[in-house]
Computed example of a mutant assay.
Amino acid sequence: MDFFTILKAIILGIVEGLTEFAPVSSTGHMVIVDDMWLQSEQFLTKYVANTFKIIIQLGSILAVVIIFRNRFIDLLGLRRGASAETQDLSEPKRKLKLTHVFVGLIPAGVFGLLFDDYIDDYLFSIKTVLIGLVVGAIFMIIADRFRPAQTKVESVDQITYKQALSVGLIQCISLWPGFSRSGSTISGGVLLGMSHRAAADFTFIMAVPIMTGASLLSLAKNWEYFTLDTLPFFIAGFISAFVFALLSIRFFLKLINRIKLVPFAIYRIVLAVVVYIVYF
């Protein structure tokens, strides 16, 4: 495997890491990059290419786990109780429970199981991705424009089960490639009265179990494609996706309450226009 093939894996990992959790649709970007670049590699059959996408997605998921590690430790009940002398009383008591996350996951999980084959067969194309990018951008602009005047939920710990379920229902539209999981859930959360940061935190936490489960299931089906020829390509992409997801998520979480969703919506529309001109 030559240097340029490894470089291609690194660049694809960068695309995944930068876009997986930003509201710009990583799936949309990967479909576009796949058609423009990934398929040009002769050693990458359709199945090897799909396995590579799973690998780099796991790199992005690992970045979320690292960033939210304390939150996941609490959710799983793995933290030993702090004594009265050592507990920081200035820190608000955390209320987000694992059951909130599961409630948010149920709708998309059910819809995904029901329509998985249809989505794979009919919705993974440049045209459908462009539709998802534009319609998703409009939804994000609407969310910023018509969000409640007063934020009801400043922290992820204030999310109710009803809000978790509502965000989960809204997440179902992200099954359309190009719409973006984080774009739909953050927009939905904002419309429900959450701060942008609270909605983003819940989105990232909720993404880990569903993405990990789907990725590991797909990985088990494609294990035969791990060979000495493909392993360097996979490793380079995984590391690249992990590093850049780590950087982009930290940057995104610091900015989201200030810049809101409109700048990301504008980027999506510009991207859709550019890709349309190039392709059509």
Rank of each mutant, 00 (worst) to 15 (best):
Ile210Met: 12
Ile131Thr: 10
Val15Thr: 07
Ser182Tyr: 03
Ile126Met: 11
Leu217Arg: 12
Arg71His: 14
Ile277Gln: 11
Ala214Gly: 09
Glu154Lys: 14
Val101Asp: 06
Met140Tyr: 05
Phe102Asp: 02
Arg79Asp: 15
Lys127Glu: 14
Ala108Pro: 05
Phe252Gly: 14
Leu231Trp: 11
Ile142Tyr: 08
His100Arg: 04
Thr160Arg: 03
Ile138Trp: 10
Ile56Ser: 03
Ser182His: 02
Ile277Met: 06
Leu105Thr: 00
Ser166Trp: 08
Gly104Gln: 03
Ala265Met: 03
Gly178Asp: 06
Val24His: 03
Asp74Tyr: 13
Leu247Gln: 09
Val48Tyr: 10
Glu91Gly: 04
Asp201Val: 10
Pro209Ala: 00
Pro232Lys: 10
His100Cys: 08
Met1Val: 15
Val135Gly: 06
Phe251Thr: 15
Asp34Arg: 13
Val101Pro: 09
Gln163Val: 03
Gly59Ser: 01
Ser215Val: 12
Thr203Leu: 04
Ser155Gln: 14
Ile126Trp: 08
Trp176Arg: 09
Arg268Ala: 00
Glu41Asp: 12
Gly168Tyr: 08
Ser26Arg: 09
Leu38Val: 12
Ser187Tyr: 00
Phe252Pro: 14
Leu255Glu: 06
Gly13Val: 11
Leu261Tyr: 03
Arg268Lys: 13
Asp2Arg: 13
Ala108Lys: 03
Leu38Asn: 08
Gln87Gly: 06
Tyr161Met: 07
Arg71Leu: 05
Ile54Gly: 01
Leu255Lys: 13
Met1Phe: 12
Ser90Arg: 11
Asn257Glu: 15
Gln171Cys: 04
Pro23Ile: 11
Val262Trp: 14
Thr151Val: 15
Glu154Tyr: 11
Arg79Ala: 15
Thr227Val: 06
Ala84Tyr: 11
Phe43Ile: 11
Ile269Gln: 09
Thr203Ser: 01
Arg197Gln: 12
Thr5Lys: 07
Phe146Tyr: 15
Gly112Phe: 03
Leu12His: 05
Ile239Cys: 05
Ile210Phe: 05
Val101Lys: 08
Lys152Gln: 15
Phe146Leu: 02
Thr99Tyr: 02
Leu175Asn: 01
Ile11Trp: 01
Lys53Val: 14
Leu192Trp: 02
Ala137Asp: 09
